[in-house]
Every structure is written in structure tokens, then in C-alpha cells.
Design a protein around this nucleic acid. Structure first.
Lengths: 201, 201, 201, 201
DNA sequence: AATGAATGAGTTTTCATTCAT
DNA sequence: AATGAATGAAAACTCATTCAT
């Protein structure tokens, strides 16, 4: 990918994630990378194409990340606190707090409101997929008889919803700062700790 | 408030909550209520004033609702399941699922990303206030010795975060439908039920 | 019709008939009537709407003219040279050489090449309708036994095609000048004269 | 002439003759021959140069054709129906219905309206030259005493104008199809037949 | 209370062209 | 012989707003 094209994607995502797709003008994007407005059309067919490419990159990245998580699930025979920390590290650092993904998630949360296709991706990547993955994790723990409780769905929501709350509160609202990232990690890990203590594994 | 002014507010909120403030044009609003663009300026100083008035109405409504909730907290000496249901009913029906408030919450979730003032209101009404209220509830229950557990903050997050997850998933994403409202209630009340069962009150 | 709207139509037709629809810019039109480009959109939805309105006006005008001609055909019981001159006067002065219609005919001749709908109108108003009308005229003359020859179609083409040639040569090519109008009339009336001499009415 | 250059000319004429010079973009042309826009400037100085070259080729072709016609006029001492058919065949097939010339004639009919130079060529090749040639033909026939009538100009217009009408109607309007070509030939030859029958040669 | 008419600034996009490679 | 990258100028159109009526 050419230098200019990459710059366009970067700047566009930056602006889209703050203001929403329609509000950002080609002028805004070009202004930040010092090219003329007409030049952008050499690299992208139109404004929509920039958006589409960003979403494509995101989905590839997220799918890769999810594959990694699911592999780590099948590989770990003796599931312990460490495996869990590993999973969290990937999910937090390579997804929720990753610069690119974080911005896309913000963008999705704006665009989902009046775009059915985006609404589906938003629903999938923020609600369905993470909850489902946790369900799988707890199913495995139940099968391995690490946990007595056998309602994997209920465990998943109990485990994931505070993380989701902290995600929305600290990672997906306002401007993302290091302070907020710390706040998120602190709260999230505290919750995970308490959760496993209660489960008594 | 004149009929036309009310119509403008209604239609504006409808559109703002779907597309965001900047994307909606005066033309869009006027088109739906069959008045000319210039007429809108008889009722509002400018586009921003429509937005501001909507936010003001919301805050008054929300404060009233919160007062009601907090009163119900001080009045009920013998706190029981019923008091809880009452609180939920108010919070769910007169706030989260109320047509006006629901749309404002959607609007806030868009605008908070690049508007610091709105970001504060969003943070307050979606994260801080509800969590704090729950903390108070549990503090009271602890004081009344209904509950042994004494970490009101932890209880609050355990109680509120699934409701928040369901709120975001079913009430604040995509288009709000009766099906989604039911889905939300079902999940939320199931969670509340399990929560109190576990607490063993 | 407001003054400005009429001016827009006038100037637009002027330019369209010289350069073709697509070549003329909104800027060109507005420049000539001293209004800003954005103002034109108060009077017309878009550029196409200007074109469409012009065509509508033309068709109404042409239909009116044709009705007049056909009435003059049914009214005149004793058909003579004078009736013919009357018909020609209407057709030449109120149609071919009329400022508005002449420009529309030029416009049609450009646009017909890549616009099927316009091609149909062009075909109708320049080829089919006039030839058909002449056929009717000669049919009547045959019925009235003013003419012995009984092939009204052949007579029509013999009568109309030189007029068509002169129309295209003097009225619809280059810039229309008084010199060319005279040239057209001279040639056309000479042809008509010779034609009726040969027919021996 | 290089393959690519020829392709550019072909495609350009195709598009120009449908939409007019200004409407067709370099992008349109290049799109159809799968080269990049910048490549076209290796073969032509600019867009205008493509147009100019097309006109040059046309004039050379037309002059050659006319020379052929005029030769056939001087060679045939005993002028008969056959000589006439020969002339028509050349004029119809190698000119009016020839793919290249037909498209140029369409292009001229668009461009003549706002381009004086083109207007002259249009006037010359569609009105003056053919009429003049016919005048010469009839002058010869008068000299050879094949015809008694001695107004060669009037004979020329009587002979040529129906052909011109059919040319404009069937060959130069809308899209050129085999059906229209047949229609033209049918009508044109019928006219020629009747014309000579009436002349009684 | 509403509107007809206008506008400056801005929107996305297209266009012919250039130039280094 | 062709192209990647860029651009100034212009295209059609939108927008929030103004102001006289």
C-alpha cells in the first residue's frame, strides 16, 4: 500500500471515529496530510470507499484476533488463571485498546444507528462474538469439571458485562487517554480477580 | 409551547438520534413537518438552539425521574423485592425505554465523541449516575442489614453492568422495536431475579 | 412565473441550444443573469429540471400550433393558394423561425443523439408530424378533387423535403440571422410556388 | 499509425458522435481501451488534437469520394440509369452509411452549433457540396440533351432534398441500425425511381 | 406565524493535463 | 510506449442563515 493511501486511511479513521463518516469532509482529510482534494480520488474511488476499506481491514484484524483466542482455548489442556490472563491480554491490548480497532469500534457505534449493514457488524463484534466466546470458555471449564456451576450463558454475562461496562465507559467514550486505559485495566482486572475468587477455582 | 415548535423538536430529535446532529439538515427537519426552512427561525435562533433545548428537556426529565427514584429509596423503610421492582419499572419505562429519553441517549452516544460538554452529560447519565444510585441502594440494604456483603460498589457493578449490557444491546443499537424491548425486559428481569436469588434476600 | 425563473429559462435555452445541455454549466447560466449559483436551486430542483421545463413548454406550444393548423384545414371548405399561404405563415413564423421553438429544435437535434426520449420527440416534431400533416392536406385536396394525382404520401415528401432541407440549412445550422431567415423564406416560397405551378391547381 | 493511436481515434469518434466533443472525457475514452489517462498524451498533444485528426481524416476521405464521383461524371459519355445507380452506391455506401463518415456527420451536426469553423465544414459537406454535385449532374444531362428541363438548380433540389430528408431521418438520428439503413435505402431508391420516371428519361 | 428569494461558504466529485519514471 | 501520482479549476449541488414581506 502506497504511503499516501496509508496516510489517507489513518487520518480518515481518526476523523471518522471522532465525528462520524458524513461529518468528515474530504477537505478535512486532505488538509491533514497536505494533499489536494482531487488527489484523494487517485487512491480511492470515493469517500465511501475509504470507509469500506477501513471496515475490511478491521474485520480481517478482528477475525485473526478471534482465531488466536480460539486456538489458545483448544491448545490449553490444563486451563488456569494464566490462560485466562493470556486471553485477556490479547483481547484488551490487541483489540479494545489497540489504536486502530478502538477507533473502528467508536466509528461503528456512531454509524450503526442509521446503517443496517454496520449495525450487524456492531452487534456482532461488540455483543454477540465476545459473549459467545466467553460462553465457550465456560463450557470448556464445565466440561473439564473445573467449575461446578453449569450455566455457561449466565456465567458469560456475569463475566463479560462488567468488562463491557468498563469498555464503554473508559475506552469508547470521550477521548481515549492513557489515564482512561489504566482506569479500564484496573477495573477490569479487579473484576476478573473477584470473579474467579467467587467461582473458587 | 406552540404546536409547530413541538413538532420541530419531535422531528429534530427523531432525525438527530438516527444520524447525528451535523448530518441532519434544517431542510430534513422542515421537509417532515411541511414548513419552509425559513420558518424554523421564527421558533429557534438557529440549529444549535434546537439541540440545546432537547438536551435541557432531557435533563429536567431525568432529574425528575432520579428524584422519584431517590424518594422511593428514602420512603421505603422495609425494603423488599417489590420496592426493587418499582424502581426498575420507573427506570426502565420512564427512562431507558421512554421514546424521548431513549432517543436522547442515542443522540448523546453519538455526540459525546467530539463534544466535551456532551461527553460529561453522557458519562453522567449512562455510567456515573445509575451506578451511584445502585451503590446507594446497596448501602441502604447493608445498613438495614438485609445484606451481609458489605462492598456496595462491587454489588452495584455486578447488579448494573448486565442491565447496561442489555440496554446497549437491545435499547440503544439499531432501530428500537417492540421485539427488542421485550428481549431487554426478559433478559434484565431474569438477571435481577438471579441476582437476588444469589444474594439470598 | 417569477421574473428570475423566466430569466433562467431564457438564458438556459439560449446556451443549451448553442452548446448542448451537458456543456452548459449552472455558472454559465447564472453569470448571465447576475444571480449566484446557489440561487438557481430555489427555482429549479436541479439542472435537468430546467431542461425538462423547457421541453414541456415547447411541446405545449407545438401542440397548440398544430391544433391551429389542423383547424384551419377543417374550416377551409374551398381550399386555395391563400389557405396554403396561411398554413405556411403559421408553420414558418410561429414555429420554425419563432425564437423559442427554433432554439428548442436545435437543442433537440443535439440531445437526440444520446437520449432516447428526446430522440422520439425529435423524430416526431421534425419528421413525422410535419410530413403527416402534409399528407392530410394532400388527402383533402385529393378528396376535394382539386388534385388528380392520388398518392398523398409521395406528394407530401415532394412538398415537404425541400422545406426541410432549407430549414436545416438556413434555420437550424450555425447562428440564426435575419439574412438566413430571408434566405429560407425566399427559397421555401419559391419551392412552394413552383410546386403548385407544376401541380397545376 | 500505431495500434493504440488507431484505437483512441475509433473510440473517441464513437463517443464524440454520440455525446459531443465536450461531454466525452479522456477518462471515457481510456476506459474503453484499457489504458491510463496519462498514456493518451503520448499519442496526442491534447483532447482537441484527437478531434482535429478525426476531422482531417474525414475531409481526406470525403474529398477522395467526391473525386471518384466527379470522375464517374466525366467518364460516362452515355449517361444512363446505371451511371446514376453507380453514383448513388458510392455516395450512400462509402459516405452516408459508412461507419466512419456517418459518425463524423453526426459529430459535425452537434459541433457546428457553436464552432464557426466546423459550421463551415458542416454546411459544405451536408448542403453545398451534394447539391452542387447534383446540379453538375443535371447540367450535364441538359447539355447532353437527355433532359429538356433546363433549370439544373431546381432539379437538383427536387432530387436531393428527399434524399437529405431520409438521410437526416434514418441515418443521422438516434442510433444507426441495420433496420434504419434498409429503411433509408428503400425510401431513397423509391424516390430516385419515381424521380426518373417523372423526368421520363 | 410563515414564506419567497437570495446567498456565501462548503460539499463531493470530475476533468484535462503534467511530469518523473 | 505506458503509467503512478498529483493538481488547479471547475462541475452540480447543499447548507444554515438572513431579511423583507
Amino acid at each position: 500500500m502506497s504511503n499516501t493511501k496509508q496516510k489517507i486511511l489513518d487520518v480518515a479513521l481518526n476523523l471518522f471515529s471522532k465525528n462520524g463518516f458524513s461529518v468528515v469532509s474530504i477537505r478535512d482529510i486532505c488538509g491533514q496530510i497536505q494533499i489536494k482534494e482531487s488527489s484523494i480520488y487517485y487512491h480511492f474511488k470515493n469517500k465511501q470507499a475509504i470507509f469500506d476499506e477501513l471496515i475490511n481491514i478491521f474485520e480481517k484484524k478482528s477475525e485473526d484476533m478471534m482465531k488466536k483466542l480460539e486456538e489458545s482455548l483448544t491448545l490449553n489442556i490444563d486451563f488456569n488463571n494464566n490462560s485466562f490472563k493470556n486471553i485477556c491480554d490479547i483481547y484488551f491490548n490487541q483489540y479494545l485498546m489497540d489504536d486502530f480497532c478502538n477507533k473502528i469500534l467508536r466509528l461503528l457505534s456512531i454509524e450503526q444507528l442509521n446503517n443496517d449493514e454496520i449495525q450487524k457488524k456492531y452487534e456482532f463484534w461488540l455483543f454477540e462474538k465476545p459473549l459467545n466466546f466467553q460462553k465457550k470458555v465456560f463450557s470448556k471449564l464445565i466440561n473439564l469439571q473445573v467449575i461446578k456451576n453449569n450455566d455457561s450463558e449466565y456465567l458469560a454475562i456475569k463475566y463479560y458485562s462488567p468488562i463491557f461496562y468498563y469498555t464503554e465507559r473508559w475506552l469508547l467514550s470521550g477521548t481515549l487517554t492513557d489515564y482512561k486505559k489504566e482506569k479500564f485495566c484496573l477495573n477490569a482486572y479487579k473484576h476478573i480477580h473477584s470473579f474467579f475468587k467467587e467461582l473458587d477455582i
